[in-house]
Every structure is written in C-alpha cells, then in structure tokens.
Design a protein around this nucleic acid. Structure first.
Lengths: 116, 116
DNA sequence: TAAACAGTTTAACATTTGTTTAATTGTTGA
DNA sequence: TCAACAATTAAACAAATGTTAAACTGTTTA
C-alpha cells in the first residue's frame, strides 16, 4: 500500500506533512478498547459470549476459573464498552455490546489466520 | 444483539454449550495484535503512517521524542505485523502493513467516536 | 578508512497489570 | 428476617510493560 508516496528524506530537514489528527479523547478511548482486547483470557471470554449471553458463574464454570477472576476480567471488558451487563434475579448476564464489536473481533481473528 | 437467546440459569447446574473455539495460536497472536494497538503513543505513530511511509528520524522529529523511543515502539508494531520496514540508504522507512489494518483502525476510531 | 549520521539494543528503573485470597455487597427464598 | 447463593471489591504480591540514558551496529560520504 501507499507505494506512490515519495521517499525523499535527506539529512534532518524533514518536510512537515499536515495529518488529520484524531482528538486525544478518541485516541485514548481507542487505546483502552484495544488494550482490553489485548489479553488471551479476556479474548477467550469474549469468544464464549459469541454464542450468547452468559452469567459470571457460567463463565467461571466453563473456564474452570474463580468467579472473582472472571468478574474482574468482565469489569475491564465492560469499562471498555465491549460487553453489556444485565441483572436477571441472582445472576448478572454479560453479552457482546453490539454487532460492531463482533465484526471487529472476527476481522482481527481472520486477519491473523490469513497471515499464518 | 442476541436478544433471542434464552436466559435460563437456575442454581449452578449450567448447560454446556459447545462453542467453536479458535486455536490457541490464533488467540495469542490476536491478543498480541490488540495489545500492540492498545497504547496511545503507538496509536499516534500509526496515525502518522496513515499519511504514508516515514523514517524513524522523521517520526522522532514530528513527535518531538527520542529516536530510541520511536524505534522501540516501531519494533512492537512491527512484531505485531502492523507495519512494514524498508531500508532506503541511511534511513529505514516504516509503513502500515496493509489495507486490512487501515480498515481495522478506522473501524475502531469510528466506533469510539460514535459512542461519545 | 574514518567521521557523521540513522537506527537499534541494553540495562536500570518506575509504573501498570493480572492473579490470589479474603472480605463485602446484593438478591432470593425458606 | 436470615441463610444461601451470586457477584464484586480490596489488598498484597508477582510479572509484564514503558521510558530513559548510554552503548552499540550499520550505512554513507568525504
């Protein structure tokens, strides 16, 4: 890509190119989003949610890990707006926040699978 | 999404649902990819590369940071296959690896900008 | 070939992050 | 209301990560 860009960079006198910059807020939130996605165990949790909503004890049971651990991971995913919470009696159900996120994840998985 | 899924979870007897799992390798590489994207300064670097290839000294100059720092950040981005390296005489030019990545980034930025 | 420049690597340090265990909050049903 | 269950929180700790400064490698050109 971008193969038509000139590569003229002689000594330290670089010509400044004005780039359209995203706002600090957007960059920070995007970094948080990616950061939340950047861990194997959280990615596995999201993978389980692909199949539909799950409560904390279900996820703990399915992954054979403590509820505390699962809860803390879900908190990070929730803060990054990757999952929704919904209380249903004693249980709290977590689900993927929207179709956007499903697509983002599948894109990333597919991209990685291609480059193998 | 997934609003038609049943939420019947009584006591701890959860019914197991067989989910199609991605391989450990794919999950790990995807986590690395997201992890590399999950930091403000690296995201800013990628943003600069949206405009075309840049060498380390250019990026250091434009961001007013040390070449060492830029070089280390680029290394992480390169290891995650987010950017390509190409030597051109004294300079090493970095560029976004492919259009897939451009789309992934723009998707994420747009998603964050929407939810504000 | 040696000086100058571009880039990378290393080691040390501070900060952040993930996990464990135990205590705490919230909800239901006997 | 209180016992039992579901989930969250807090504190302590280990591991991973980002930054700085200095040493090092690679390339050009005088």
């Amino acid at each position: 890509m971008s193969s038509e860009h000139t590569l003229n960079c002689e000594s330290t006198d670089h010509q400044m190119v004005s780039v359209i910059k995203r706002s600090d807020d957007v960059i920070e939130d995007t970094a948080s989003l990616f950061s939340a996605l950047g861990e194997v165990s959280r990615l596995r949790l999201l993978e389980l949610l692909f199949d539909g909503p799950r409560c904390v004890s279900e996820l703990a049971h399915e992954t054979e890990q403590s509820m505390s651990l699962i809860s803390q991971r879900l908190k990070i995913l929730h803060q990054a707006r990757l999952v929704n919470k919904e209380r249903q009696g004693k249980h709290i159900y977590y689900s993927l926040s929207d179709e956007h996120i499903v697509q983002l994840l599948n894109n990333a998985f597919d991209h990685v699978e291609e480059h193998k």
